[in-house]
Nucleic acid binder design. Structure first.
Lengths: 331, 331
DNA sequence: ATCTCTTGAGAGAGCGCTCTCTCCACCCTT
DNA sequence: AAGGGTGGAGAGAGCGCTCTCTCAAGAGAT
């Protein structure tokens, strides 16, 4: 049995298909009593518009692709912030009756798939969450004639509006806190330098050290807990006298905390630790982690608004959201 | 400028639209040289089939709804396993060229929206991740004439094929481990009893205690870390002599560990702790958590296969995946 | 009373595709 | 050589909807 069509609704209401369509699309040029008759017919038949037919003629799809691009080697989508972002974006879009088509782009093959799909006009716009610098997707998508916005500043210079948090400012605030609490030898565990977050947070660290006449001590991790532990051991070997470390994300900070404990350093007495992200686990480390909070859900919601704005021919200025220093016990 | 249509491809290749369509749909009744000509035209024009037009006539959409239903009060989608499941399901579907439409159903309003959308025939099937027992969605969706599968056994008895892990068996294995290592007073922190996981894991606990002639000591949490901490304090008050606790998920176990530390109990010397889920954080607690691992990604992938199977008129037997006891230091 | 203007509703084309039906040409069988 | 298959290609209907165009009816102006 077929689902009822607009034709059926019109027949039942005793009007033409055109009039029924007007009611469905909330046009005002319909007399109230006719309108009511149509609405009743819709209700009785349980009519739902066929979106395929509709988008065939309107050339709109009312759906948005949410593309998550991550390098094959690392799985950032397991990051707890990832699901927060997806959830927030999804709910924001549902509020304006847009569908969310989720696409994972991890391999070259899936990249091609995504490109083909997007260029096929199946979606009205794209929200891109790209995780690494060498990603060809931002520039590829920006060439397509589809509105694209990015969660986070794209690593390659490309004309895509984006929403990001203030990585540099946040890192500066974190390191400044260490300086102001009298730390002398402030090291950092930086993130991967092919990621914007990795780069900018290191820049923020360097900015403050330069201005306050401290020496920089840098180790690089890849944003995983394990790499944080390794980097911390490295730093302790390089400079056993260090009394503070700014870690580019909380996950690595958790690892660093472990290495410090194993090395017999007390936190924060011997070594102060500042993380970044304020993930859930930051509250439960021993000691609880001082870190920089950035509004993940808000960032995702802002990205949605930016895209919707683009549809209406609005501005495409990047949006930068502030970060907040959350002082707990580790620094 | 419009995207090229099949008509344009046909014209360029010097064939009829029907023949071009045959080539696109990989029908074999096309002579090789004609086929090549069409493929060349497709390539030159950058033709991509219009999915709206296609699904208008085929009545298929090649997209699947992934519905995440969670109670308004709790946000389980922040659970790390949630994103693993979504990711796995998504990749599995992409492999067979299906689109994933993500829908969050948290409020009654969004429930209605989801129902309307699904019943509108916009998707070929539904994968449901429902988080709580009182959820009206499983039964509502099962009434629609759309194939539905569930991630986890639905809390209400309803005719939906599902994939779940062996909650009861897992809980039994965990508690049995405590019995076998000589623990005498084994308490449990159960999960919410409106969730299948909460119920079944408690059942497993009770099964083993009954068979091994232990007394059961039960506190109930809501699967959050905080509730685990509260429940643990409660248990220590109820029975200060307890020497083991089986916690229905790792998040609560983390909270329980904190309460035990605050109460001056050593783990595992004074009190052994077994969790459930084997989340990432379970490796990094102090001490590392003995817990039950279940294959989240595999469960999601199995759910996809179950749905695809359903499309082909296949069986709809529930699938139960085994759990595995991971022994670390807490028990 | 006639004409114009506005409002409300219907007719019908057409969005891009699939798929059945039809037809043609060629080969095999008798 | 005639008839019956068979494979390959085209014609054309129609999926369900939107939207322009058209037209009827009534209100207001002259």
């Amino acid at each position: 049995m077929r689902r009822p069509t607009l034709e059926a609704v019109a027949a039942r209401a005793g009007v033409s298909r055109a009039t029924a369509s007007r009611v469905v699309n909330e046009q005002t040029t319909v007399a109230p009593h006719i309108r009511d008759a149509v609405l009743r017919a819709i209700d009785e038949l349980g009519y739902v518009p066929n979106s395929a037919a509709r988008s065939l003629v309107t050339q709109r799809t009312d759906s948005i692709a949410l593309v998550v691009s991550e390098p094959g080697t690392r799985v950032f989508s397991e990051d707890p912030m990832f699901s927060t972002a997806i959830r927030s974006a999804s709910m924001e879009l549902e509020a304006v009756n847009k569908q969310v088509v989720l696409m994972m782009a991890s391999s070259a093959k899936s990249h091609a798939r995504v490109e083909r799909y997007i260029s096929g006009g199946h979606v009205d716009g794209v929200m891109l969450i790209s995780m690494h610098g060498a990603d060809p997707l931002p520039s590829a998508l920006s060439r397509l004639r589809v509105p694209v916005v990015s969660y986070g500043r794209p690593a390659v210079p490309v004309e895509i509006p984006y929403v990001d948090n203030d990585n540099i400012g946040g890192a500066e605030a974190g390191v400044r806190h260490l300086v102001e609490t009298g730390r002398r030898r402030i090291a950092t565990i930086a993130g991967p330098q092919d990621m914007i977050g990795g780069q900018d947070r290191l820049t923020g660290y360097r900015n403050v050290l330069r201005d306050s006449d401290h020496r920089s001590i840098v180790a690089v991790g890849d944003f995983t807990r394990e790499s944080g532990a390794v980097a911390m051991r490295q730093l302790l070997r390089d400079d056993p006298e260090l009394d503070a470390v700014f870690v580019a994300n909380d996950l690595m900070a958790v690892g660093a905390l472990q290495s410090l404990r194993q090395a017999g350093r007390r936190v924060p007495d011997d070594v102060a630790v500042v993380g970044f992200d304020d993930i859930e686990a930051a509250k439960y480390t021993e000691p609880p982690l001082t870190t920089l909070r950035h509004p993940v859900a808000e960032q995702a919601a802002a990205m949605v608004r930016l895209l919707l704005n683009l549809f209406e021919g609005g501005t495409s200025e990047p949006v930068i959201l502030p970060t907040e220093l959350v002082i707990r016990e580790s620094a």
